[in-house]
Design a binder for these strands. Structure first.
Lengths: 340, 340
DNA sequence: CTGAAAGCGCTTACAG
DNA sequence: CTGAAAGCGCTTACAG
């Protein structure tokens, strides 16, 4: 009862094999596959049968050689242990597949050379770059490639670049507005890790700017500190921040979030009665703790989907650079309440 | 002062361009590149200069068409938000690059069809599969591919398959031994999520078997429960487990770990005085909490590296299937102590 | 130590 | 609606 697929020789089934089996020319098989000219119903049927029967799969290299298209997108991702990164990778992978593209994974530490290599060797048609820094050293290379590139994130200089990101500056403002509405006049920010600030992670600076400006214009006191993702750093950071007796805490650091919540608990600080908490992170992280957290969610799925869409538009010929900043939404949950 | 790389036409630089510029035959350029025959020093020098000057990069599709080799490895990863998955992806990506291979990222939910497509279309030379289940539905396809495949994980039936994994059965035993040595006679296990058991995650069952058998032979009482990665599930799980008054807790669930530690703290259970804790997880997760945890670390970096090495050996012609189970090591830290 | 040429498996004008 | 043929950019026997 075994099917006779792949029986006999182990060699590759080519378009010529299919053509012979179907009694047509190779070009006809090609056109059936691409739909680029009309084919009689009978021909189509017999060709499609042969394709199935022989288990034909077009050779990607041959196709790319003939068309200058690979249908592969390269994603450049940082390798750190980070759920948000994983979210973005997942989002881009899924939407790439939805558009019949494969995904090549490059790591950030391969640097600019790898980007040029992948494009110049026609391994991928386009690049999606994660974890962009304010003055990213890869920018000159990216610009000189002359091929489709989309950045998830926004560097300082965006001339000629296509970027998509959450509007972190407004996100910072949203946090202040929400807390100010609840009567809070003193806010503390647990920011990204010192490493993130040092490498100039673009979201870190923009969020800080947004929350600072908003605090000023609301007459709200703000104290901000970066925080490394380990227990000691969190304790120190909270020591410093809580010394100012804030009534609300904004956490823009997903890795630190569970540690910080546990530490607040250890210090007998009830959330939200003693301290309101707003987090900027993925929603899954926000609802896994004891108290469901008010968040400004990072919409990784949307951002990843948009990046794929935008880069494919470029592949299709659209060359106008564009910056898209998604308006942040704040989702109120149990971790924020009125100042008591 | 601009360099004259890439000046003028935007079209692809080919081996013919390089040959012309160097005054040699295209085949000579090819041999300089591949090192497959001896080349006079002068010829080599002039060819290498032309390559640099023109910014030549070999066309991957053309090369794969001519050689039947892509130098691309495909990694099939599950998409869930999970640091361990991220660890494995990072490990495989890095070691692939070290061996001059690119990495294509496939998602688990694409199923067996994607695996066949990627191999049959010569998009990748080989497959590395993560998150293997006891009776994984992809196994028949994988076996029929006739191409290099390495599983990270071990299904029940391994005939004809090459697998590499931590020896989770022995890992379970190590936990019991360590705790029994410290005098503990009643152990509780927080296992992987119900979802993991349901899909038959192979490590879940093997670890449970190992810890169960070891507990029996040590005359130690064991109570085990799966646990979903959210606060309510953790609370329920601990309610059930702690009712048995264990003096030690084994946590084989990285996502649950920070929540569980916070919850123990909330219940006034001091670690290790009231309760010893052993975790099976990456070491970064183990040392980020208030108490550095005794672990049996999951050696993602080693496993990923071995998978790449093994799959490349297969690509090079080595066809003998093999099962490699890494012996687990237990790293004692502050979270385990003698039963008081 | 080096060259000329066939062939890898596709796509797409060109011709009918 | 369909076929015959050139060409995409490499590699590798074959010949010298």
């Amino acid at each position: 009862m075994r099917s006779n697929l792949c029986e006999g020789t182990n060699s590759v089934v080519t378009i010529i094999d299919v053509a012979r089996a179907a009694g047509v020319a190779p070009s006809t098989v090609s056109y059936v596959l691409s739909g680029k000219r009309s084919i009689s119903p009978q021909t189509r049927r017999v060709v499609e049968q042969s394709i199935r029967k022989l288990g034909y799969h077009p050779h990607a290299g041959a196709r790319s050689l003939a068309t200058s298209r690979t249908n592969v997108l390269a994603l450049v991702a940082p390798l750190r242990e980070d759920l948000t990164v994983m979210d973005f990778v997942a989002a881009v992978a899924t939407s790439a597949r939805d558009r019949d593209q494969d995904l090549l994974l490059l790591t950030k530490d391969e640097g600019p050379t790898a980007l040029r290599r992948v494009i110049s060797s026609a391994i991928a048609d386009a690049l999606i770059v994660l974890d962009v820094e304010s003055a990213d050293p890869r920018l000159p290379t990216l610009l000189s490639l002359g091929r489709p590139v989309v950045l998830i994130g926004a560097p300082d200089q965006t001339a000629g670049l296509t970027c998509v990101d959450l509007d972190y500056e407004t996100a910072g403002a949203r946090c202040v507005e929400h807390l100010a509405d609840l009567g809070h006049r003193s806010i503390a920010l647990v920011g990204p890790s010192p490493a993130a600030y040092q490498r100039g992670a673009s979201s870190a600076g923009r969020f800080l700017r947004g929350i600072t400006n908003a605090a000023n214009s609301h007459g709200t006191h703000l104290r901000a500190r970066p925080c490394a993702p380990n227990y000691d750093a969190v304790r120190d950071c909270l020591d410093t921040l809580l010394a100012g007796e804030p009534t609300a805490l904004v956490v823009h650091n997903e890795a630190v979030l569970p540690i910080a919540m546990a530490e607040l608990h250890r210090r007998w600080l009830r959330v939200p009665d003693d301290l309101s908490v707003v987090a900027v992170c993925s929603d899954t992280a926000a609802i896994s703790g004891a108290v469901p957290l008010t968040t400004v969610p990072v919409p990784a799925a949307e951002l990843g989907g948009m990046a794929v869409e935008m880069v494919l538009r470029q592949v299709a010929g659209h060359t106008q650079p564009e910056i898209r900043l998604l308006p942040p939404r704040l989702t109120p949950r149990a971790s924020t309440g009125p100042r008591l």
